[in-house]
Design a protein around this nucleic acid. Structure first.
Lengths: 202, 202
DNA sequence: ATAGGTAAACTGCACCGAGTAGTTTACATT
DNA sequence: AATGTAAACTACTCGGTGCAGTTTACCTAT
């Protein structure tokens, strides 16, 4: 079996792709099913054959985007490796996530809707909420190991991510700033680790 | 002249108040002029007597909210006072800003629109963009004074604010978390200053 | 394997009811 | 008589449906 894309399946993918573009451009309310169907080069009726409503289609897009993350990034605590080295890996992989096209797409689509729809916020969060835990657990273990000062590990993780996102997420999302270059990314990662360890290193 | 609110002026204020609620609840696209007029207990015609279009009304709301900040918060660098004390004031006043009802209203109204309308983003930013400069200048002066390690003052200011917003802004905006209690606010401010000085103190 | 037939999917359009921003009309209050 | 009002109205777009006719996919019979 080669590509073996039945026409129906192909149309379905066309619709999903077009819907993603439409929602990304205009948001949920601004998106129009007519315009979306035209984009997909598909009859509107076909759209409704695949998805019963605009909302269902929207949630399909969100779920699809949520699932499209390799979802690794769960750093493991190593008692013997230097802390800065391990944290640098964590920072780099977080920046890489923030830089990835699909993650930025997901946020452009969902975040503005989340302000007025807490259920969407919590469902997306829950749908991909593990990577935050990764860092939190790492910090906990390093604290228990006596290599970091004891403190609120959750709060510390929030600080760590806040340092990164302040330069490599929020400005790009709302002020359409360009994403940091690889050199800038390295500075951000280095400085985040530096600052974090300056505060928490035992 | 006492309160001397002409009936026309009173209606104008009713309309502005109702519009603010409507936009805050439903966003620009979701808001309806009919519902808004009903909210203000005013004929729709009256709305259009005061504001020629939905867009103009929206921009009036945004401008009004922008102007409603006392806009102090511009901390002054004092070569003799302790750094932590001065920074603590800065952190506290930033948190106070983030906590203020009108600032949160402004953000609930504008931020989701900013994702798809860069012009609105830049115009609002410009309309209240000075308080960022305050901290930036303070850090610059402290660096020139030799009391902070020399570094990119802009980046450092971004880190400082990022630490605060990670706990007292973004989670509340998108995940409708409750705002930190005064005790939590104190922890955030303390820890932000602590971390910042651990990294930058000369 | 090829031809033929069937069922499912797609198309394009007309259409529905609801709701939109914005305008006009006709009445009521002062 | 003058002003401001509510209600009706315009011209549209929206999400969603019904339907008639066409295309595709697939299974069967030769």
């Amino acid at each position: 079996m080669e590509k073996a894309l039945t026409l129906t399946e192909k149309k379905r993918l066309d619709i999903l792709a077009a819907a993603q573009d439409e929602f990304k451009e205009k948001g949920f309310l601004g998106a129009s099913m007519d315009s979306l169907a035209k984009r997909a080069e598909v009859s509107k009726r076909t759209v409704y054959n695949h998805f019963p409503s605009k909302e269902v289609l929207f949630h399909n897009i969100v779920k699809e985007l949520c699932d499209s993350f390799s979802q690794a990034a769960n750093i493991q605590y190593h008692p013997n490796k230097p802390l800065d080295e391990q944290l640098y890996v964590a920072a780099t992989s977080e920046i890489e996530l923030l830089a990835s096209e699909c993650f930025r797409d997901l946020n452009r689509i969902t975040i503005s809707e989340c302000i007025r729809s807490p259920e969407l916020a919590s469902s997306t969060l829950e749908h991909l909420g593990q990577q935050k835990d990764g860092l939190h657990v790492w910090i906990s273990e390093a604290m228990n190991d006596g290599r970091l000062k004891t403190a609120d590990a959750n709060f510390a993780a929030q600080q760590f991510l806040g340092l990164i996102k302040a330069s490599a997420f929020w400005p790009q999302l709302f002020m359409s700033q360009t994403f940091p270059s690889p050199e800038q990314q390295k500075i951000i990662a280095d400085d985040t680790v530096l600052m974090f360890l300056a505060r928490y290193k035992a």
